[in-house]
């Protein structure tokens, strides 16, 4: 009986693993095949990698889209980390009743779905466009601004700050450091792993963000990678090989982060439970 249980276990895991991996395999193999090979169901690598890449670069503005996505993701990550860690640190270290109330109100924002925000946000950005065109509709800043502060990330930093040895802060104070100095010179360097995990989740969320860029970006030169993939995917006579090339390229950054920083990656994903 024990043996049969084991066999069933391995079988179950193998099937799940195959189902999980197959779309990746198919993506990678298809990017080396012609469109008609893909439709015929070819599952072996072919020799059309270069051709698909050339086609992709000629058909769409891949490099500008990659650049836009990278600018947005890096800016979002840097600003989010700064804002959220300052707040998470503040809420925990300078704890007070009033601040706890504010913190709980901020947490409520996690319940607000983005779909409910997009219309009023669109109107908000619409109304500031004539006054401040550089952060108005159809700018990269408009993509970044509403996404740089999430209650989740503040919560994440606050939870990690709970483990932070407070005596070190006292030592810093005795050494004559200003409060803000303590934060930047003591807290930030000691919390490297928390920052790494937070950076990964924020970068990924921003790199993959679809709905808000879809709403707020209009001109083709501001397109981001998810918008480009979505447009390619909705074409009536898709060139499968070329589209898979685009999808693989779009997935590369997050896949690389995953494989090289698996520990932080998982820590980031699970950040909210402690």
């Amino acid at each position: 009986m024990k043996l049969s249980n084991k066999v069933i276990g391995y079988l179950f895991l193998s099937i799940c693993a195959i189902i999980s991996i197959f779309p990746f395999y198919w993506m990678v193999v298809s990017m080396t095949n012609t469109s008609s090979d893909v439709t015929r169901g070819k599952l072996l690598p072919g020799g059309h990698f270069i051709e698909n890449l050339k086609n992709l670069l000629q058909t769409v503005d891949l490099v500008p889209a990659l650049t836009n996505s990278a600018i947005i993701a890096v800016a979002t990550t840097v600003l989010s980390l700064l804002i959220a860690s300052l707040a998470g640190y503040g809420f925990e270290i300078y704890r007070s009743k009033a601040k706890d109330i504010v913190f709980n109100i901020l947490l409520l924002s996690m319940m607000i779905p983005f779909a409910a925000l997009m219309v009023p946000l669109f109107r908000m950005f619409g109304s500031i466009t004539p006054v401040l065109p550089f952060i108005g509709i159809d700018t990269l800043s408009a993509v970044v601004l509403p996404t740089i502060t999430t209650a989740f990330l503040i919560f994440f930093f606050r939870q990690s700050t709970k483990m932070f040895p407070k005596e070190i802060l006292e030592a810093g104070r005795i050494d004559g450091l200003k409060e803000i100095g303590i934060f930047f010179r003591i807290y930030v360097p000691t919390m490297k792993t928390t920052y790494a995990a937070a950076a990964i989740i924020t970068f990924m969320a921003s790199w993959n963000n679809y709905l808000w860029p879809l709403v707020v970006l209009q001109s083709p030169e501001n397109q981001t990678i998810p918008l480009l993939i979505s447009n390619l995917g909705s074409s009536y006579s898709p060139d499968y090989g070329m589209i898979m090339m685009a999808i693989v390229i779009a997935t590369m950054p997050t896949a690389i982060i995953f494989f090289f920083m698996q520990k932080h990656f998982v820590a980031g994903m699970m950040g909210s439970v402690k």
């Binding site: 895991l13 799940c16 693993a17 999980s20 991996i21 779309p23 990746f24 198919w26 993506m27 893909v38 790199w207 993959n208 679809y210 990678i225 998810p226 993939i229 979505s230 390619l232 995917g233 898709p238 499968y240 589209i243 898979m244 999808i247 779009a250 997935t251 997050t254 896949a255 982060i257 995953f258 998982v266 994903m269």
Partner: peptide, 20 residues
């Protein structure tokens, strides 16, 4: 292997599923 799908963007995997 089972965690791997989490690295894909929602748009990218959706397009792949549409074709599959």
């Amino acid at each position: 292997a089972i965690f791997l799908p989490c690295v894909t963007s929602l748009v990218a995997y959706s397009v792949v599923f549409k074709y599959l």
